[in-house]
Design a protein around this nucleic acid. Sequence first.
DNA 1: TCTCTTTTGTAACCTTTGTTACAGGCCTTA
DNA 2: TAAGGCCTGTAACAAAGGTTACAAAAGAGA
Lengths: 230, 230
Amino acid sequence: MFIKPLYKGLFLYLLNYLLSMIQELKNSYGHLFENELLEEINQVGTFKDIPEGFTLIDIGEYIKSMPLLISGAIKILREDNEGDELLLYFLERGDTCAMTLNCCLGQTKSEIRAVAELDTKLVMIPIRKMEEWTGKYRTWRNFVFESYHNRIKEMLETIDSIAFLKMDERLSKYLHDKVKISNDTIIHATHQEIAYELHTSRVVISRLLKNLEKLGKIKLNRNNIEVFIS
Amino acid sequence: MFIKPLYKGLFLYLLNYLLSMIQELKNSYGHLFENELLEEINQVGTFKDIPEGFTLIDIGEYIKSMPLLISGAIKILREDNEGDELLLYFLERGDTCAMTLNCCLGQTKSEIRAVAELDTKLVMIPIRKMEEWTGKYRTWRNFVFESYHNRIKEMLETIDSIAFLKMDERLSKYLHDKVKISNDTIIHATHQEIAYELHTSRVVISRLLKNLEKLGKIKLNRNNIEVFIS
DNA sequence: TCTCTTTTGTAACCTTTGTTACAGGCCTTA
DNA sequence: TAAGGCCTGTAACAAAGGTTACAAAAGAGA
């Protein structure tokens, strides 16, 4: 007698929880996939909440599942021999990790590190499903190709930045990208952290940031930078 | 009476020509594709001989067919705002152009330039077949994924070079790659041409080459460089 | 052979980026 | 509120790479 309402409550809570999952899936991927595929993703996928700063994939790791981003952002980093980093690009809602696709198919180790840039929601798909869906769903195939396409475009942009831009231009672009991805004109990062991601030294970044401030483009504070949008 | 042997000769020549095509296909792609697919490629593909230096694809062009390399090598280049170039990587036998895949699917313009590094043989595949085969042949799908995989790996290597290496190291790597791709320890190129591909100036390249010569790693001549393999 | 063009060598100088060193400010925590 | 750790600012210097200028050597063509 007492217990029934409790069960009912739990049941409804659970139902609501599951419904919200499929709903979030539909919001992010509904325009790409048919309902059948969305249902399958909902069935076999594991929904995860990743806190900012968490390392999802590290260099040298084998990968057993593939993430589909629902919200938040993930940064993809490359490492040199000395262990210093370089930011390659960001992943956002509707993106997946092309490197993971690689690793899944090739059974090779990860060449990159993936770190949550913001608090992030995603679905992890077991790789065996990937194979299956590639044969079964045309929309999935297109999604995978489209992902490769986008990632290659981003890598080209990265190459452009490194090869063609000077450090002050790269820094401006970096700040701009950070604002866009976080949807916040205040960037919460130290000069040291920025230096790491651009693969240079803290002193260089401090110097260039001070220039940008003198030009009235940003305002420097401790642990954060206010960017005046243009 | 006179004419018969002529026809016979022509017929045999043509037969031999066609047989050699499928034979070349099998040599390069026989381990990847089933006979049925090889036959289809042979049917719908156009075999081409490309002379060294020929521009296959230029930036901004729309692409209507996809090349499968049989022999030779193609270099893939990126361009900056001033029209200066940067070498991204080489394609060899068994490779295809991932950028082309992109463009075909996305119907977007080419982001890169493709130039024959050596005299090159290839088969051009119409893009509509690509779509069809992706659904039909598992081996084709795997080949396409594998191609993306390889291209992304090469782009990561390119990024490593640009971001992590100094110009003298990049130059050494460049010379090494050239020797490997052409299978010839004598590189036929001027300092100016090398400077273009590394996106720097002729004076810098001359300076660094002279250093390498002093270190006994190469021998400089007019229009060519002899590399002492290590 | 003479001239013109292309290619290479080199010096001198400038800009950009990287390095080292140190001081001062802010925050946390005992 | 004192101590210690991070974060930022800045100077001074070093190294790498880019620019300009010019000369000499090699080949091409008349």
